[in-house]
Design a protein around this nucleic acid. Sequence first.
DNA 1: CAGAATCCTCGCCGATACTG
DNA 2: CAGTATCGGCGAGGATTCTG
Lengths: 135, 135
Amino acid sequence: MTTSSAAQRRAERARAYNANLAECPGHDLLGTLSDKWLTLVLAALADGPRRHAELAATVAGATQKMLTQTLRKLEREGLVTRTLTASVPVRVDYALTPLGESLLPVQRAIKDWAETHIEEVHRARAAYDAERAAG
Amino acid sequence: MTTSSAAQRRAERARAYNANLAECPGHDLLGTLSDKWLTLVLAALADGPRRHAELAATVAGATQKMLTQTLRKLEREGLVTRTLTASVPVRVDYALTPLGESLLPVQRAIKDWAETHIEEVHRARAAYDAERAAG
DNA sequence: CAGAATCCTCGCCGATACTG
DNA sequence: CAGTATCGGCGAGGATTCTG
């Protein structure tokens, strides 16, 4: 039957893609860095430990759900620690682990490139769009 | 009407988020780096110019559609050039621009971090999952 | 205050078919 | 061979509500 061929193809593609991921650890990390919220939270924690509510305020644009979800991911990857203080209103602090801190220079490298070349990118975009509009 | 309040809130969030993006060029770039296909194509072009079909084979897992779409984005950002040779079967070559090449060290930095710390991440994940399963 | 569970929307991506 | 257009499925993520 050709009915399932579509699904099969999809599975095949997925496997090919995952094979790509598997053979290169960089892609694994990229899966992490790619997450915009992850990046933002990581940056927010760079200056020091923060509470859940503080992060919510700092990140600006993140939903409570996404924030929690993101923090869980970071915790799982060993990039942040979650410290729970059992007071009357529960208090939870998040802080970077050494591993998480070791990632900051990488972020910094990205940011540096961006700050150096962003204008060039903007110009390229404008040129491209202008050409499209004109042509 | 309260009908549009949800939509309005969404718009508000979006504006807040975009404000975040605007004030930090790094986020703009991250939007680019975040795209998995972009990264893969960029890496595929690192060794030298490639034709459309070659890229399709190299990237493995990408659809023709995604490939074209990705290449357009890269072109727009000024990271790759698209050279069209008008022979009988049309020939198109893609190559990195200097700007695109300048991005390679950043990719390399990411990859390096990954290769150095990936095991630690894996261990952290395993530990986290184990604790979850046990608890 | 921290976060878990639910519903629902929206946009990405794949498949397919057609042009030059 | 390179590229565009259209349709459809699926999953990520946002709003909302409820617990401890």
